[in-house]
Nucleic acid binder design. Sequence first.
DNA 1: TTTTTAGTTCGATGTATTGCGAACTAAAAA
DNA 2: TTTTTAGTTCGCAATACATCGAACTAAAAA
Lengths: 155, 155
Amino acid sequence: MEESERIQKQKELIEFIGRHNEKDGFQPVTARIMGLLMVMDKEEYTFDEIVEEMQISKSTVSNALRNLELRGVLEYVTYPGDRKRYFRFVSGDIDEMIVEVEKSMLQKLDIIKQIIELKKNPDSRNAKFLKNVLEGMNFFIEHLEKLKAEYKSKH
Amino acid sequence: MEESERIQKQKELIEFIGRHNEKDGFQPVTARIMGLLMVMDKEEYTFDEIVEEMQISKSTVSNALRNLELRGVLEYVTYPGDRKRYFRFVSGDIDEMIVEVEKSMLQKLDIIKQIIELKKNPDSRNAKFLKNVLEGMNFFIEHLEKLKAEYKSKH
DNA sequence: TTTTTAGTTCGATGTATTGCGAACTAAAAA
DNA sequence: TTTTTAGTTCGCAATACATCGAACTAAAAA
């Protein structure tokens, strides 16, 4: 693949990732900045470089970066003798990522438990179904722990 | 727990589920209708009962129900000699739910693969990190199949 | 001390979303 | 045939959201 073609494809991928992340609740500009920091060969951008690259206002970049930092999506580093911040994608580890998934599952699990507890008839259609889901999710979470251990021992 | 207290708690749970589902991209009213159909003892509601219960306009209910049906969240049944539709929560099976999870993981996996392919330097920070994630997700998806089989054989 | 740099904060504005009510419709009932 | 039922569709109003540009700020450089 030619260099210019590759870079063209990177830009298109940023746009695609942008639309994908919008569905995950990020706002358009924010979603595309995530793409930028993941996709491009340059993996650390300053504030002004992002303004330049994405053609958006300083205030928008400022807010987007604060958001992304708050959500733990990106971080910045600085270099001695250079006042600028260099923003980059956070490379969390797999372990943490799984913990996040577990957390969100446990939240849903808790809601399901509450629904079941509040049912008058514990054999109603919904109650039975939700108990089923509960059981499945519990099975899954238990084994997730094992899977995690197995993966870690291999890597 | 007293009957009135239980019902009060159900209402509060519907509100809580509503806010929770809003974060998953459902609109406020739609999110609360989901809660209603999951939580209450009455598990099948007619159009007018939903209008009545939630105090929202017919048009809003009409749109919300269409949306939820489209997304596969709820369905309706009818009874002979009764023109009304009875809306209820869909009780899909665990298997399907896992397939959904896999699908969304494969989508993200695909994006990650594309990012890596387009990197000039395959040993860059992001490239290395993403390869790591890729490996982890692949491991996970493989084992998910086994887990699924194991669960099915037990139930 | 003054100027520059690297952002942040604060209204303003345009656009999207949400929900409403009124009018409409197709099927069933009278 | 007329009326009722069970919703649907359409246009509007209110609100929320995303982004902007201008003014501001704190630290560093000159």
